[in-house]
Design a protein around this nucleic acid. Sequence first.
DNA 1: TCTGGGGTCCTAGGACCC
DNA 2: TCTGGGGTCCTAGGACCC
Length: 398
Amino acid sequence: MFVRTEATILHADLDAFYASVEQRDDASLRGRPVIVGGGVVLAASYEAKARGVRTAMGGWQARALCPDAVVVPPRMKAYSAASKAVFAVFRNTTPLVEGISIDEAFLDVAGLKRLRGDPAGIAVRLREEVLREVGLPITVGVARTKFLAKVASAVAKPDGLLVVPPDGELDFLHPLPVERLWGVGRVTAERLHSRGITTVAQVARLPEARLVSMLGRAAGHHLHALAHNRDPRPVRVGKRRGSIGSQRALGRRPRTAEDLDAILLGIVDRLGKRLRAAHRVCRTVVLRLRFADSSRATRSHTLRESTASTKVVLSTARDLLAGALPVIEKQGITLLGLTLSNLDDQNAVQLALPFGKAPDGTLDATLDDLRERYGATAVTRAVLLGKDQGIQVPLLPD
DNA sequence: TCTGGGGTCCTAGGACCC
DNA sequence: TCTGGGGTCCTAGGACCC
C-alpha cells in the first residue's frame, strides 16, 4: 500500500460560513455579532461566538446571551452560490477535491510541487484567493492524513493556517481530547469518560479488542486506527449522494390525518423536484417520525423498480403514513420527514423502459418547468391550497 | 422550550437462496 | 430430515456530522 510521507492533504473550512456571507454582503454587519436563523441558530459570526452563541442553539437562548446580535433569516441561494465559487477556487488549485459539505473540502496536492510549490505555500495562496475572489475567510489545515488535516483546521480556526509536519504528528495528536476523534460524539465520549479515558493518548494505550468490546466492531476498529495515527482514507473525487430527504418540525399541537397528508404532499413534491433536477431515481422511500417524547421511528418500503415520479413516491409515502397512524395517535407527532434512498442515475433506468411506454413523468416535468420559470410558489398542487399554514394563493402570470 | 434541516455509516434480525 | 455454512436484500434503529 502507498503510504504518504509528506503533508500533502489540505482540509479547507470556511469560517462561520453563513454569517460570513451576510457580513460580506452587508457592510453594516461587519464587526458585529450576527446570528443566521430564527428559531434555531444556523450560524453565528465569531463576534457572536465570543459571547457563547453556538450553532444549533435555540434562538431564545442565543438572544439572551447576546441581546445586541443582529438576527438575519437564512439566504440559502446566496450561500449556495458562494459555495460554488469557493469550490471553483479549490478545483483551480487541484482536480483532487473531495467535498464534505457546503463549506468544507479535502484537497490532495501531492504531485503539484513542480507546478505550484509545496503544500504550505499552496495553502497560503488558496486562502488569499478565496478571500480575493469570493470575499470570505477560510481556514486550512495541512497534514499527511485527512484526519490530521481536519483536526489541524479545527485548531487553527478562525482565519488560520496550520501545518502538521510528519515528524510532529504524535505530539499533536496524543494530548487531544477524545471528542476530537472522528466518530466520537456524545454517546461514545460518555462511554470512554466513564472508564476514565479522556485523551487520544489513553485511547492509543487500549488494546483494540477492548475498544471493540466497548464500542462495537466498526467504531472500535476505527478509533484504534485513528488513535494510532493510521488513517488510510484517500481523498476521493466525485462522490455522489446516497439519499435525499426533507423534513418538517411540527411543534406540539395535535394534527389531523388530513394535516399530515397535506404536509407529506408538500415534502414529496419538493423531493421529487430535487430528484429530477439531479437526474436521479430512487428505489426506497423512508418515512421519518419524531414523537412528543423525542423518540424517533422510521418506516420504509423498497420498490421493485426505481422511480422519479412524484405520484409513485407519494402513494408509497401515503401507505407508510397510513400504517404509522396508530403509533402517531398514541405518541403524538412532532416531526414528519421523508428520505429517498437507493438512488441511481436516471439514464440507467430510462434504458430499461419498454419502447412506447409513456413515462410517468409528464406532469412532473411540466410542473417542474413552470416553477423554474415562474417561481416555486407559482404552481401548487390543489391539496396544498389552504391547508399548510402560510401558503400563498398561487398566481400564474398572464 | 430540546430546537432545525440535511446527510452518512453501522448493526442486527429475518427472509430467502445456494 | 436435520445440521452447517455463507451470502444478499430488506427493515428498523441508532450514532454521528455539518
